[in-house]
Amino acid sequence: MDGGKPPLDPDCEAFTGSELGALAHLYRGEVYRSTIWRTRLDATTNWSVVSLGLALTISYQTADSSALPLFLVAFLIGVFLYLEARRYRYFNVWRARARWLEIYFYAPMLRREKVEDPVWLDRLAEDYQRPEHHIAFSRALGRRLRRNYMWIFTVQTMALYGKCLGAAGGAAGFESLHIGAVPGWVVAALNLVGFLGLAFYTWWVWLQDRKRFEERVNPISMG
């Protein structure tokens, strides 16, 4: 008894048993690699959170503690953001290949449909033959900002202004941020301008991603 299942499409069985086994192992390998790089992404995010936590501890230790560590930690978080955006481009390669197999191989197989469409097979083969990043660094940067780092920068900026304005209020509260001859209010303004610039960039990349997804019939693809 076949339990009422529809018959397999004749083209579904064009793959030999050994080829099906190889594809299954290929999929497992891509999932494993995407998982490894997903872990690496989490590592840089954790480093950013720990660094911000240390800066908060130092600046808020006493009422007279300087707020400068909260400003300087933004540069360290920026380095972690750069590293994570680079790692995301690699992660996206393995993730995209795994999703490609799920959509065009496993899903049609479960529906008893044709799985040997030469378009997706050629696209996947080309990606293995000439591997390359599927998204630009600028888009990867925007995505990591949207997912994680804008929240971290938001906490950093709020903590910095909370420390300065809570210490003495007004311009006097920014004196703990002075660097040499540079007044504290200038440093605070630079932090705010940088934060607003990142927020605008995140929003712009989000608009580009949404437009790109709306223009495609299938929103999941290589990249």
Rank of each mutant, 00 (worst) to 15 (best):
A107H: 13
D209G: 00
L177K: 02
R40I: 15
V187N: 03
A188P: 01
D64V: 04
D9V: 06
S65V: 09
W203Q: 09
L110K: 08
V49T: 14
P108D: 10
Y104H: 15
A107E: 14
G21M: 13
A98L: 06
W206L: 01
I36Q: 13
G53K: 02
P131R: 08
Y128L: 12
L41A: 04
L165N: 01
W47E: 15
R146M: 12
F174T: 03
H133Y: 15
A140D: 00
R28M: 14
I179W: 12
F137I: 05
W203H: 15
R146S: 15
R130N: 08
R95A: 07
G184Y: 06
L124S: 02
Y32V: 06
H133S: 09
S51V: 03
P131A: 04
T57K: 10
A14L: 15
R95K: 10
F200H: 08
S48V: 04
Y161L: 13
G21F: 10
L101T: 00
P6E: 04
D42H: 13
L110S: 11
K163C: 10
D122A: 13
L196P: 02
G197V: 12
V115P: 00
Y82T: 00
Y106G: 03
I58H: 05
T16M: 06
A171C: 00
H25K: 13
S48L: 09
M150R: 13
G21Y: 07
D127P: 01
